[in-house]
């Protein structure tokens, strides 16, 4: 078997002002072609205004067993969420 095109992760900004979002992956020989392929594969229905591609091999992921230590501490900081605060209705929308 000949050498396989590397795998890329594709991130698309759906509308101006929004974050890029992971939409899927594809194969391409290099980054430039990955961008072109992403346009053809992942924006067939006008889904995007901007594309990022990243070699899948370059993604470093938090290991699932870190789930506790990495994310649980923020559970205790409930004050970070707007619903923590009771604001009287008379004040209006906030």
């Amino acid at each position: 078997m000949s050498k396989e095109w590397p795998l890329w992760e594709v991130f698309i900004r759906g509308q101006h002002g929004l974050n890029h979002r992971h939409v899927g992956s594809l194969h391409a020989p290099d980054a430039e072609m990955a961008i072109m392929n992403a346009r053809d594969v992942y924006t067939r229905r006008n889904e995007g205004v901007s594309i990022w591609v990243v070699p899948s091999a370059q993604i470093t992921a938090s290991s699932p067993s870190d789930k506790g230590p990495l994310f649980e501490p923020s559970n205790s900081k409930v004050y970070r969420h707007p619903t923590f605060f009771d604001i009287p209705e008379e004040v209006g929308h906030m």
Binding site: W5, H27, M36, N37, D40, V41, R44
Partner: peptide, 11 residues
């Protein structure tokens, strides 16, 4: 020859 090309050419 590749799925990506199939899709691109159809476009």
């Amino acid at each position: 020859p590749a799925l990506e090309e199939d899709i691109a050419l159809a476009n």
